[in-house]
Simulated scan of single mutants.
Amino acid sequence: MKRRDALLKELKTAGCLSARELASRLGVSRSTVVRDVAKLREAGVPIRLDQGGYALAGPETVKRAIDEALRGRHVLRLEYAGSKGVPTVRDVEPSICLGGRGGHWYLVAWCRLRNDVRVFRLDRISRAEVTGERFPEPGRDRLAELAEAVGG
């Protein structure tokens, strides 16, 4: 387990590392890194594979994905746990990311699962992935729904 702890420490420090880079830093083979990452994921550690390598999924990763989706009007795939803690995967069309009450950040988006505007608390998003799909500029009706969702 100490090797897996060291792997996590490397990811926390460096951010994103390839299997080859991790293997070199830990003094093990690339296949050992791949196995260790799989075991950590099975244990519930939020490690994701990006183009640059492995990274810990977390609040900063989620915020970066949201920012990218907002800038490019890309659909965002979220793994989201609602107030009851049940995780769902949702494709959303992000419109506004804003601060809210009690120090929490929120994302206002059109939720394709619910076919309605929804407000997502960022600390309940365990994973956010920008898809290659772009969504059109929202129409007047959708803009009115979005404004209503944020109290406008």
Rank of each mutant, 00 (worst) to 15 (best):
R3Y: 10
R4S: 15
E10W: 00
E10K: 00
L11I: 02
L11C: 00
A14T: 01
A14D: 06
A14F: 09
G15M: 00
L17K: 04
A19Y: 01
A19F: 02
E21R: 07
E21T: 02
S24V: 07
S29W: 04
S29N: 10
V34T: 15
V34K: 14
V34S: 14
R35I: 03
D36S: 02
R41K: 14
Q51R: 15
Q51A: 15
G52Y: 06
Y54L: 01
A55R: 15
L56R: 06
P59E: 15
E60K: 03
D67E: 14
D67S: 13
G72N: 12
E79V: 15
G85W: 09
V86N: 10
V92G: 00
P94A: 09
I96K: 13
C97D: 15
L98N: 10
G99W: 12
G100Q: 05
G102T: 08
G102K: 12
G103S: 06
V108A: 12
A109P: 01
R112G: 01
L113N: 03
L113T: 07
R118L: 07
R121N: 05
R124I: 06
V130R: 15
G132V: 04
P136T: 00
D141Y: 03
L143K: 14
E145A: 14
E148F: 12
G151S: 14
G152T: 07
